[in-house]
């Protein structure tokens, strides 16, 4: 570690029962960089960021945020360190019992940063930042299309001006154009806030649009890191097979278990 990493993961292990999902993850994300983590479905990408967020308890290893190990810190300190992370969940995870504006302003209301009266207007501003009209705020999440839900979820994630942002498969399930739009919004938001980010994806176009650096997760470990721009011409066999979607190579898809 030359300059201090914003997030530094060392030897992270996580197993569910006797199934090892993370098997000694090492990962550094430098301040202000956008990291993309690529890897096949079910390789533990979501588990990795949920461990960093504290939503899943890691078995062993260390997770340093700003140089402090959240796994060893007191619960209150760990919560404080993690409170600077904004998260965009894979399927949005909008609160379907609340209108859109309350979803967007949820974090601000929870921290008493604004009154309920101001929240509506404030939510309108964040909705505008993701290209939605303020009137969308009055709708319920169920009334929105998938792309709009992703935008609202993004607005909710950026509302707290987080220093760190996680995006879990932000474009999965969207058409290519909407995917590109969401990627553009993500890049804008991260740049505007000057945040450090980790995005999970298995969409190569998306990875190159939003990432500065990339890491490949395979069999529970990070097997390759490098510039995101070099993903398609990496000479690592695992990466090359994955990014080009070849059937032959070191990655053997488990068709049955």
């Amino acid at each position: 570690m030359s300059t201090a990493a914003k997030i530094s993961v060392r030897g992270l292990n996580k197993a569910f029962g006797d199934k090892k999902v993370l098997d000694g993850i090492d990962l550094d994300v430098m301040p202000g960089t956008a990291m993309v983590v690529i890897g096949g479905s079910g390789t533990g990408k979501s588990v990795l960021i949920k461990c960093i967020l504290g939503l899943i308890e890691a078995d062993s290893g260390s997770i340093l945020i700003d140089g402090e190990d959240v796994l060893k810190a007191t619960p209150a300190r760990a919560r404080a360190l993690r409170s600077q992370i904004g998260m965009l969940f894979q399927n949005g995870a909008l609160f379907d019992s609340l209108p859109v504006w309350e979803n967007v302003a949820f974090g601000l209301l929870a921290q008493n940063k604004i009154s309920r009266r101001d929240a509506r207007a404030k939510a309108g501003e964040f909705l505008a930042q993701v290209g939605l009209a303020a009137s969308v705020g009055e709708l319920s999440p169920a009334e929105l299309s998938g792309g709009m839900q992703k935008r609202v979820a993004l607005a909710r994630a950026i509302a707290g001006a987080p220093q760190i942002m996680f995006f879990d498969e932000p474009t999965t399930g969207l058409d290519p154009i909407m995917g590109a739009v969401i990627d553009g919004l993500i890049v804008d938001c991260v740049k505007r806030l000057g945040s450090t980010s980790i995005a999970i994806t298995h969409d190569m176009a998306s990875a190159q649009r939003i990432g500065d650096v990339a890491a490949m997760l395979y069999e529970g470990r990070i097997v390759w890191t490098g510039p995101a721009a070099s993903l398609l011409d990496s000479d690592n066999e695992v990466v090359s097979q994955f990014t080009h979607g070849r059937r032959e190579g070191p990655i053997q898809m488990a068709l049955r278990r």
């Binding site: 993690r82 909008l94 707290g160």
Partner: peptide, 11 residues
């Protein structure tokens, strides 16, 4: 994931 989302929003 809505319950997880609550945790990430200081709740």
């Amino acid at each position: 994931d809505q319950i997880d989302a609550l945790s990430t929003l200081s709740t």
